[in-house]
């Protein structure tokens, strides 16, 4: 397999100190950090249909040793995540080597093997009262009036068990202290959480950051259609500022003061 050969080369030629990929252990495809000392382990390298936030793991490693050279198996979403982490100075692009994996279909390849490409089944009750995973934000906005939008989202949000999984799995959530743990914003030890504040705080913090990998939705035990929510966040940021997180290495409009964006406050319509 070319991938294995390429990864081995990276390690053997000391281009990287560690290579993050996947391997099979006890029947589970799980991430693994391959090293030069055990380079033959790379024969077990898998692409894995189960995606884990490898970029977050890379951050963990870089934090322990900023000079560590890291190789990483990168899907399109990983690439976006990496760009974002470069932008925010969490990873040094000079220390990162990527081996790209075909996932989302692109002009270069007609097929993709990402499990996220297949639509998720949405139950009848969710369709009637909640938010369909597969709806686009624009359709959702067009098909439901304001009251219905509110009740549907509140139905989804009030299921939240505050596991913080969405944040924990997110490859671009790197803050050492999280506003979601701030006692003045989210009261600790209280379940269910006050709606919709938890999710709105997270949604605002994802503005200009979310790279649409979908890991949050996957990790949610309450089946909240988070990916669809953050897609709306991305749509809004891109509509207003023309900024697509992870597209290139450029700070988000919320971190740039000045004339880059000329906006006027929306008028108050009564």
């Amino acid at each position: 397999m070319d991938m294995v050969k390429a990864a081995k080369e990276l390690l053997l030629q000391d281009k990287v100190d560690i290579f993050l990929g996947y391997r099979k252990l006890d029947g589970h495809q799980i991430p693994h950090g391959f090293t030069k000392a055990h380079v033959d382990d790379l024969d077990q390298l898998e692409i894995s249909l189960n995606r884990y936030p490898l970029e977050k793991i890379a951050c963990d490693l870089a934090q322990k040793d900023p000079a560590l050279k890291i190789g990483i198996l990168a899907r399109d979403c990983s690439q976006r995540a990496l760009n974002l982490l470069y932008t925010w100075d969490q990873l040094n692009p000079e220390n990162i080597e990527t081996l790209t994996v075909n996932c989302c279909p692109s002009p270069l390849s007609t097929h993709g093997d990402c499990s996220y490409l297949t639509p998720k089944p949405t139950g009848d009750y969710k369709k009637a009262h909640g938010v369909d995973y597969n709806d686009s934000p624009k359709d959702f906005l067009a098909n439901h009036d304001s009251g219905e939008r509110l009740s549907r989202w509140m139905y989804e949000f009030q299921k939240c068990i505050k596991c913080y999984g969405c944040r924990n799995v997110c490859p671009v959530c790197f803050c050492k202290e999280c506003s979601l743990e701030h006692p003045n914003l989210v009261e600790p030890g209280v379940l269910p959480a006050e709606v919709p504040i938890f999710h709105l705080i997270r949604a605002t913090h994802m503005a200009g950051r979310c790279i649409d990998c979908g890991l949050c939705e996957d990790a949610c035990p309450a089946h909240i259609p988070l990916r669809m929510l953050y897609r709306e966040v991305n749509d809004a940021v891109s509509d207003i500022f023309g900024y697509v997180p992870g597209d290139h290495i450029e700070k988000s409009p919320f971190s740039i003061i000045g004339k880059t964006v000329e906006l006027t406050p929306a008028p108050m319509d009564v």
Partner: peptide, 20 residues
Amino acid sequence: RTLPLKSHPVNQGKLCIKGW
């Protein structure tokens, strides 16, 4: 760090706050 095991039949890649 703890991550949920995605291919585990019980939790299917999800965890509660304690597990995380």
